[in-house]
């Protein structure tokens, strides 16, 4: 659990030339379950996008394992609100996109890959949504399809951007139980952006807390104590 899998070295993140957060130096352990916390606009999603290569870093470096057998393969689970309902895609169509990395341009998806996508949908209990319109699914159902898509990538790092946003309490509980379960079973490294502290307390091991340009890292036991929480919230209020 303690070997460093992803290392951020003096990273500055932001858009254009405007930094949102600077001097980020931390390590994410292999197989860890890490939550990224912080108030709105603190840079959580920007950090995630920079890790995924969607947004280039303004300064600093991100180090991944050098060996090909051991490389970090990201499975990205974005917020469901970003998807345009105009696209007439079924749950299966969306999950199928996960295998596109392994299929060259202009080539068709093989039967074996399709079967694998069905297996991923089954693993996330989303097989029943495979023929339904993705835009018609509820928030929790969409998240399961998107996690299936991330598994179809054959990822070893699952990156979830506020997966429980807009999801009701029962579905949130079920979804988080499921994420914890696949974390255990598949030994995935999980990075989760959330605002939900009770969920973090229950499921997460490590915390990265971004606030007011300062970075706090530690375990749940270290950071979610009443004293530290009061200190953090007081700093945010100020």
């Amino acid at each position: 659990m303690n070997d460093s899998f992803i290392t951020l070295d003096n990273l500055a993140i932001g858009y254009g030339n405007v930094p949102v957060f600077s001097n980020i130096s931390l390590s994410i352990a292999r197989g860890s379950f890490t939550a990224i916390l912080g108030s709105n606009g603190s840079g959580k999603s920007t950090l995630l996008k920079t890790l995924l290569g969607i947004q280039p870093p303004l300064a600093g470096h991100i180090h991944f394992p050098k060996s090909n057998d051991d490389s970090a393969v990201f499975g990205y689970v974005p917020q469901t609100i970003q998807f345009d309902p105009l696209y007439l895609l079924t749950g299966f169509d969306v999950a199928l996109m996960g295998v596109y990395q392994r299929i060259g341009p202009g080539r068709f998806v093989s039967k074996a890959e399709r079967t694998f996508v069905y297996e991923c949908l089954r693993a996330t209990d989303a097989e029943k949504f495979s023929t339904k319109q993705f835009s018609d699914l509820s928030g929790g159902q969409k998240q399961r399809v998107l996690i299936a898509r991330a598994l179809a990538v054959k990822s070893n790092v699952l990156v979830l951007d506020e997966p429980t946003a807009g999801v009701d309490a029962a579905a949130t509980h079920s979804l988080m139980e499921f994420i914890s379960q696949i974390h255990e079973e598949r030994k995935l490294t999980i990075l989760l952006v959330t605002h939900d502290l009770p969920l973090v307390r229950k499921h997460v091991q490590q915390i990265i807390w971004l606030h007011q340009g300062k970075l706090l890292t530690g375990t749940v036991a270290e950071l979610l104590t009443p004293e530290r929480m009061a200190e953090i919230f007081e700093m945010e209020m100020n």
Binding site: L52, Y76, P78, Y87, L89, Y100, R149, V153
Partner: peptide, 14 residues
């Protein structure tokens, strides 16, 4: 279709 539907995913897939 992938680039139109989910640009971020397309980038993470290289």
């Amino acid at each position: 279709l992938l680039v139109s539907f989910d640009r971020a995913m397309a980038i993470t897939l290289g």
